Simulated scan of single mutants.
Amino acid sequence: MLQDVEKHLTRFFAEIPDLGVTTRREPSSRHGFRPDIEVRLRRGDRRAVLLIEVKPSAELRIVHDWVDRLAQLPEAPDAHYPILCAPYISVKAAEVLKSHRVGYIDLSGNCWLDLGFLFVERSGQPNRFKVPKEQRNLFAARASRIVRTMLEHPGKDWTLQELAQTSGVSVGLVHRVAKALEERLFAERRWGRFTLQDPGGLLDAWRSFYVEQRIRWRRYYWAMVQDVRTGMHEIASYARELEVRYVFTGPAAASLLVPHLMVSAIHCYVDALKPVLLDSLKADPVPSGGNLWFSVIQREDIFLGSHQIEDLYVVSDIQMYLDLSALGGRGEEAAQTLRERRLQF
């Protein structure tokens, strides 16, 4: 992506007369800000240094977070300008940036730069990177298998055939998803192989989509549980006996990976919620709260990547992060801890 941005910047500044330009990729950190590209401009005796940070998306949430982070950094010296660059910056995102006097350049042809000796504004250019409708939802059930597989192996190079076989989907679907990932600058293709270039951005996008979905949890109060770990083993024992497929998620599952998490409920996916299972547990349904949450899931993707810890099946780290994020509150805090310690992107 940085190579594409550099090419765009070269063409962009070449159109401005009497302007000297020097570009350097991935310069050192400056004043607490680490740009992806540094552009030095000169016209006569005037100078400016553009500290350009490249984002795969300029959604409003991302733009707000970015300007908030800038506000917490030491003020840049004169003639040094943080600039946001993305494939497309919408009118609303542009308004946010301009209201903070922060410049931007997008790869679709829009820009706003106010450097004192140089002012450039271009607007109204459509999003050249808009994903076609049939490719828009990267996180639909079958498409998300591909995203999940790549996020679980973020540094791996794939052929489309390898990715299709590992994800359990058709090569045609992999091709469409791969194209969408490339267009949104989450991934790139080189020498016939395909790899993620922004796993963190892709996970952020999936989280934003996922938290808006409504996982239907059935809540119960389980008076017999002694402690969370013992309760999980008891549920697993009954599930095996009744041939119910299960997998734990949420804070209870995360506590097996990250010690010292506060756990107030057990969350468990099952492929069938048999009355005999609830009778065996002596669990009573409650309209809210509860310390035992079940969700009946028959989609295979939820179970993909699940593994055993202490003889208990738990969801993959990616799925656990999504579920914790969707729970909100302390779940979000646990999600961030899991991401920092386990996912590390």
Rank of each mutant, 00 (worst) to 15 (best):
Q3H: 07
D4S: 02
T10Q: 11
A14V: 03
V21M: 14
T23A: 05
R24T: 13
R24S: 07
E26R: 10
P27D: 08
P27K: 15
R34Y: 10
I37E: 03
E38N: 08
V39R: 11
L41E: 03
V49I: 08
L60T: 07
R69S: 09
A79C: 15
P82Y: 02
C85W: 06
I89H: 00
I89C: 00
K92Q: 11
K92H: 13
E95I: 11
E95D: 10
S99T: 01
R101W: 03
V102R: 08
G103R: 01
L113M: 05
F117I: 11
G124I: 13
P126R: 09
P126H: 03
F129M: 00
F129Y: 14
K133I: 12
L138Q: 00
R145G: 12
R148Y: 09
E152Y: 05
E152M: 10
H153K: 15
H153W: 13
G155N: 09
W158C: 02
W158L: 07
E162P: 05
G168I: 09
S170L: 12
S170M: 15
S170V: 13
V171H: 15
V174G: 03
V174C: 11
H175G: 07
H175I: 10
V177G: 15
G192Y: 11
F194G: 03
T195V: 06
L196P: 03
D198P: 08
L203P: 01
L203I: 12
L203F: 04
D204A: 10
S208L: 07
S208W: 02
F209Y: 15
I215N: 12
R218M: 04
W222S: 04
Q226C: 00
D227P: 01
R229C: 07
H233S: 06
I235E: 07
Y238A: 04
R240P: 10
E241F: 13
V244L: 03
Y246K: 02
F248V: 13
T249N: 04
T249L: 00
A252E: 04
A252F: 09
S255K: 06
L257R: 00
P259M: 11
L261F: 02
L261W: 02
M262G: 05
H267R: 15
C268R: 06
D271N: 10
D279G: 10
L281A: 12
K282G: 04
L292I: 01
V296W: 02
E300M: 13
L304V: 12
L304S: 15
D311A: 07
D311M: 14
V314R: 06
Q319Y: 02
G331P: 09
G331V: 15
L338Q: 06
R339T: 06
L343Q: 03
